[in-house]
Design a protein around this nucleic acid. Sequence first.
DNA 1: TCAAAAGTGTTCTACTTACACCCATGC
DNA 2: GCATGGGTGTAAGTAGAACACTTTTGA
Lengths: 233, 233
Amino acid sequence: MSRERHLAYMTVDLVILTVRGGKLQVVLVRRGKPPFEGQLALPGGYLEGEETLDETALRELREETGLDGTRLHLEQLHTYSDPKRDPRGRVITTAYLALVPELERLVAGSDACEALLMPVDDALSGDLLAFDHSMILRDARERARWKLEYTTVAAAFCKEPFTVSDLRRVYEVIWGFELDPSNFRRKVTKMDGFLEATGQVTDSRRGRPAALYRRGPAELLTLPLLRARTRRL
Amino acid sequence: MSRERHLAYMTVDLVILTVRGGKLQVVLVRRGKPPFEGQLALPGGYLEGEETLDETALRELREETGLDGTRLHLEQLHTYSDPKRDPRGRVITTAYLALVPELERLVAGSDACEALLMPVDDALSGDLLAFDHSMILRDARERARWKLEYTTVAAAFCKEPFTVSDLRRVYEVIWGFELDPSNFRRKVTKMDGFLEATGQVTDSRRGRPAALYRRGPAELLTLPLLRARTRRL
DNA sequence: TCAAAAGTGTTCTACTTACACCCATGC
DNA sequence: GCATGGGTGTAAGTAGAACACTTTTGA
């Protein structure tokens, strides 16, 4: 039995998604040193000192984008451990998913010489990304789609305050089809805790001004599904 | 800047859940050596050699229960990285969730002197478990409840072939309330790909014999939710 | 024949869908 | 006025909840 207890390097990779120009986009960096020098990759870095992975993710997010992850949707996705995933040796990475409303600045990190925003579809076409980052990005997009279906995270893509149409456009971009504006509005406004009215309206450029909302406290979209006869046992 | 790249030991901890005696139960081991000697803990072990975490989880599951994880529901849950979570030093663990229909045998692992099944509620009352395993178990139960709501994993708790009532009892135990048998049956049988009829029936002990089913190929429970006007963009 | 569990039918209600229509603004 | 997007009303269809009722077995 080769019962060697393996010491491994731990890294965190970030999938930072945003909606821009009618497309779901991801933050990528061009690697400034080997391995995969010059290729595109997800931003990330080593776990340092006494950090938790969450803290590493927050630090990397700040270094890369200047954003404060504590006020954003930032969640752990999955841990990737294929021994061949990094040619340098045993490097295990935990991927985090960040959903951000906008990106004011993109800051190049220490081992990146360039940070950029790219449509997810483009990033996944061909074999563009370093390491196993194509797989990670695919998993992240799946998770985002799934979460939109069952939770209120779509609002995490909207800069507050936002309109019902802003929110609807997020769903349309990520799901790839149009939603009926009137029915969509009824559903999200009637759902308890999804949206909070600010009382303000947009100063419209075209058409009637739209009411402005903030994110509400609700996180899950409730649905009856298999439930019936909800008598407590 | 203390930019030391941290080497860490990686472990895998298993949350093996099953439904027995009308309760959700979890497999625990009594630790045979320090730290936390004599206390209860989730079964787990070190990542070894060139294993992936998935392979470690499969190996541990087989060692602990004799079960073949490739034929069960086994999924990665979350990675826990608090630097103080293990008094021995920096040990990062990835938790896996296994849903099993039954446990024929429980095999004590190398650093465990005893493996046992315990109701999840009991395991979480007080501060029974070693390390951060109470938190892991709580997270696992949350994930299981959530997955029952949106996927067909409930069937993973049922030994094939099973009846609609067997399946319903799983939901009732995990959600904590009764479901209407007739409406439940209609929903799960009408849902495409959830159940596959075997054509067989139980040899009933009481009442009319029940039709027997196998798990179908479907994994997600489809629901319209926010969707309307599904015209492709 | 009775009890018990499986399974079907039926009514009422609530929600979804599709779409007509009104509202408020800029030009 | 007219175009544009915001927002409401509503009729038809669908799906869930509740529960009465039938079926099939063991005792």
